[in-house]
Nucleic acid binder design. Structure first.
Lengths: 204, 204
DNA sequence: CTTGAAAATGAATTGAGTGTCATTTATATT
DNA sequence: AATATAAATGACACTCAATTCATTTTCAAG
């Protein structure tokens, strides 16, 4: 079977990532095992080592893939820009839907994130991810400045970081206390309102 | 050795909790094993099962103990009340010091919290903890109303919950991105400022 | 159709942690 | 001092995931 192709290898990796995603959605990060993933993929035990070295590597690959998708989506959102408010509003709504879905990967992401904080390379990975997200929102706020939606310069980074810790706090709360106890919609609405108050808007 | 005493049993449990705390501080929650704890306590393998059934039970006992301490502390802070601002300010400062200390248990707490979200009893445990904290801060804000520091009724629960998700978000960020990247002091100061803006103060 | 090399398999090994229990140790009681 | 009994010990068995690797399968090239 000398099918040297890189494409084939790529295809196999995709297969693994797909199977892994199912498992991580179902069991979270810590409880998921390579065995689970191999079984989900319907393949034999040792097989997975031909493509990945461990669970961490698989999760990082999966996350990289999904992040690219999400950034793409956000870029589209920005390009269909109307107001900062409308973009944020839609972004928050999508976030909420994803989080409250039965099928979400978010719990596993937060688990991975927080259990891996002692791992230098993972910390680096998430730090980069954080910087990218900050940059993403900075773009948005700058667009608000350029379009004249905001009248004065605003501390873009400061506001973005505040927003991000609020969001992550909510996410963690809704995860850890159960969705029933946390009214994500209400909290996100409040956050959005507070954000808009912080931004010195033109009076149309 | 018929030392029937409950006190003795209590003493042993304390010993275990002390050893466990050391281990959890050093290794976090997931990576810590009963073996580590037994070794830290300088005792033999099977010994720990005479007092606790598993790691989860130990961590819950430890957390219950520490929470009681913290609530005690907060009660003292409130009783030495000057203004809401001063209480919050001191509370934030203590939180920050604890979080940035080398010796902190916080990382393990967040780890336990987030990896155990599928466990109904743990979720219940943390939900109660959340309600207690909300109640704690509600007390504080009500005191601000009674003393005339605030002029109008304020949505106490709403504000408290917003504050708590902000704080937990910051904590998780500083944990996961590394303390070097997150300026806890700055972010907490900003949060405090924003909180005070939300509270309609008497113009003294 | 044969062959050779890469891909895939899965039985077996490794390794780490959990949990049990027969035995030993310590000491309060008599 | 002898005895009874609870506390403590630590070897051992168990579980389960991770990992290896000899063997088998597959398929493109000759």
């Amino acid at each position: 079977m000398p099918k040297v192709t890189d494409e084939h290898k790529e295809f196999r990796k995709q297969q693994i990532l797909l199977a892994a995603m199912e498992v991580f959605k179902r069991k979270g990060y810590e409880k998921a095992t390579l065995k689970d993933i191999v079984e989900q993929a319907g393949m034999s035990r040792g097989w997975i080592y031909l493509y990945f070295t461990d669970k961490k590597q698989i999760f990082e690959a999966l996350l990289t893939y999904l992040d690219a998708e999400q950034e793409q989506k956000f870029a589209e959102l920005i390009s269909s820009y109307d107001t900062v408010f409308s973009v944020l509003s839609r972004f928050f709504e999508e976030l909420r839907l994803e989080m409250t879905s039965e099928e979400t990967l978010y719990p596993a992401v937060y688990e991975f994130w927080i259990t891996s904080w002692r791992d230098e390379t993972v910390r680096e990975f998430f730090a980069k991810r954080y910087e990218r997200t900050v940059a993403m929102f900075s773009d948005l706020f700058h667009k608000g400045l350029d379009s004249g939606e905001f009248t004065a310069t605003i501390p873009v980074d400061e506001i973005t970081k505040m927003m991000m810790s609020s969001i992550d706090g909510m996410m963690v709360h809704s995860l850890a206390f159960g969705l029933a106890r946390i009214d994500m919609k209400k909290q996100l609405d409040q956050l959005l309102r507070r954000l808009m108050e912080l931004l010195p808007q033109s009076s149309i």
